[in-house]
């Protein structure tokens, strides 16, 4: 009896000693995947951005990237920031409208707005080429209603057209996230604001938006990073014209010059653009829970 008991306690001790390893074992598959599929290509890409064609370490790739493409880096940032801001305003407005109204129109809108989410960037690019062309649908429509002269149509294969296309594609996706957040907010918070005198606009700006900061931030970060990284849409709309986006430049460097060094340097610059957002997102998601008490 006594022997059996000590056997059991021995096994218990062994179990305790191994207990620390169990959670690590659970984490191993996910960690390994992250390392192989994400960390290794990323580190290797950063490393190669410092390699000259002969294999020696150098800053030449960055120097060249700045000399040739600085204007495009700024352009990419401008497009991403502008389209994210416009899409955010639009999606917050639309979400607030759907959240605070009722009726058939709202049901129709809440169905329709989702459609662009399912259309790939390349199709959006093709659509926008016909829609925004000098004699495309938009210009013909504007000429019909007398806003412009079709002999001098709006030129939209540039930043404006790109921003418009990104907004068309990103705003529905942002609305999906933001509306979800708005719908989690109990009616009583909205009604409490109205009872003390807030009109609809004040309810949106002072209650809905601040109470929904988390999902709005997520929507902005996701839309911004995806806009920065999109290649097809700017390629189809602007192509190799100057200025264009960094993604187009990267493809250009690789396709025509086989220049992986400068392409990787440009990739690192792009990564730095989204890094600020990524840091904010990570910090925010760690801090999250402040308001959910």
């Amino acid at each position: 009896m006594a022997v059996a008991k000590s056997d059991a306690s021995l096994q218990d001790k062994k179990g305790e000693r191994l207990a620390w390893a169990f959670p690590l074992a659970l984490l191993l598959p996910a960690t390994a995947l992250m390392l192989v599929l994400y960390a290794w290509p990323f580190v290797s890409s950063v490393y190669r951005s410092f390699l000259a064609k002969g294999g020696e370490l150098t800053l030449a790739n960055y120097q060249k990237a700045f000399e040739l493409y600085f204007r495009d880096v700024v352009f990419s940032l401008e497009v991403a920031i502008l389209s994210t801001i416009v899409a955010a305003i639009l999606s917050i407005t639309l979400s607030a409208y759907v959240r605070l109204s009722s009726g058939r129109l709202v049901k129709l809108i809440s169905l329709l707005y989702r459609l662009p989410i399912f259309i790939p960037f390349v199709v959006v690019g093709q659509m926008m080429r016909t829609f925004l062309a000098p004699h495309g649908l938009l210009n013909i429509f504007l000429a019909q209603v007398g806003v412009i002269d079709l002999n001098a149509p709006l030129q939209l294969f540039n930043m404006q057209g790109l921003v418009l296309s990104f907004v068309w594609k990103q705003a529905p996706f942002m609305t999906l996230i933001i509306l979800g957040g708005f719908q989690m907010i109990d009616d009583a918070f909205v009604e409490a604001a109205r009872s003390v005198g807030a009109n609809i606009l004040q309810v949106i700006l002072r209650v809905l938006v601040p109470m929904n900061r988390a999902s709005i931030s997520v929507a902005i970060i996701l839309a911004f990073t995806s806009t920065v990284g999109t290649f097809t849409l700017p390629f189809m709309l602007i192509g190799g014209k100057i200025p264009t986006t960094v993604t187009v430049d990267i493809a250009h460097r690789v396709t025509y010059f086989g220049d992986w060094g400068v392409a990787n340097a440009l990739g690192v610059l792009m990564y730095l653009m989204v890094l600020i957002m990524a840091i904010y997102y990570l910090r925010y998601s760690v801090k999250k829970g402040i308001y959910e008490a």
């Binding site: 409490a192 604001a193 109470m211 959910e292 008490a293």
Partner: peptide, 9 residues
Amino acid sequence: FQNYALWPH
């Protein structure tokens, strides 16, 4: 309100 509805932010 029954659930107070104090604005948490």
